[in-house]
Design a binder for these strands. Structure first.
Lengths: 162, 162
DNA sequence: TATTGTTATACTCTATAACTATA
DNA sequence: TATAGTTATAGAGTATAACAATA
């Protein structure tokens, strides 16, 4: 399932946001997959290029769990797009260094992402697109700033073994 | 993880839609949980009230799989909010009949949903809210109308047993 | 003691397959 | 043959726990 369908009476905000975000996500995934990237790999690549960052820092930027970060960096390393390098200041931490090939791929993936976003907005004029982005940005500064704790589906701590 | 965080340079459409839809979803879930409903139960209840509908019809409206529908109706029945009744025209099908209690709960849950949507838009003026809904609606009629097939994550058909 | 990164794994969600009964 | 509903379960995604190395 993707999202709640609109009531016959009113297309509601829940449906609109769920639907548009889900479809955009699938389109982004499909477009990036053509060059062998996931959205997470793209995200990490781009932010690792900006400056020297550790896995934890990149995980925070991408809002990923650190364990999810591990598999993402594994994938980037296996594809030859990035490398783990010891931090010179903290021997626990690993700097994610983007390779030359990784930098090229990041440039391509950024163009792909920009294109997907342009296409998503193709039903709107340039001005309307800016209006939409502006209004959504203000939503993220209001009641929709932070998620509320999950009510029932919250995963309970695992039974402690020994 | 919830969604890709914004690049420092530009808050992009992917982040904005993912973030707002995710936060709204958690808020809706939390609000409906206070009266013991999930978003799916609310959706089924409301549409079953409108007219006589079978599980399959309600599943289509809510964009759920029919197996997901089964557990949703189970929950509604156990809560005494709806009942399965044989269709008079198709003995395979079940009409989902909302009980008196179910109708009361549906009225409350609809007020809750409306309130959550109002609160979500509280950072905007009434006019801006309408503009946002209008622009999102037009997005769903453009390139963001239908999801594209999942590229790699597509679930493969299960190994056939015997 | 707290934190980075790692492995292993358990939990949730949801779709797939197979089935029964009808059409 | 195809469809409505059901059960059981596989697969994907992701968070939790525990751990080693280091702060």
């Amino acid at each position: 399932m993707t999202a709640m369908a609109p009531s016959r009476t009113e297309p509601d905000l829940s449906f609109l946001l769920d639907h548009t975000s889900h479809v955009l996500r699938t389109r982004m995934a499909a477009a990036l997959a053509e060059i062998g990237l996931t959205a997470r790999m793209h995200c990490v690549l781009v932010h690792a290029l900006e400056e020297e960052r550790t896995q934890i820092q990149l995980a925070e930027i991408g809002d990923m769990d650190k364990t999810t970060m591990v598999v993402t960096v594994d994938a980037l390393e296996q594809a030859g797009l990035a490398e783990r390098r010891p931090s010179s200041t903290d021997r626990r931490a690993r700097i994610i260094a983007v390779t030359e090939k990784g930098a090229e791929v990041a440039a391509r993936s950024q163009r792909i992402a920009d294109r997907v976003h342009r296409e998503a907005l193709d039903a709107l004029s340039a001005e309307e697109g800016k209006t939409l982005v502006g209004l959504l940005t203000r939503l993220t500064e209001g009641h929709l700033a932070t998620p509320v704790e999950a009510p029932q589906g919250a995963r309970r701590a695992r039974q402690r073994i020994r």
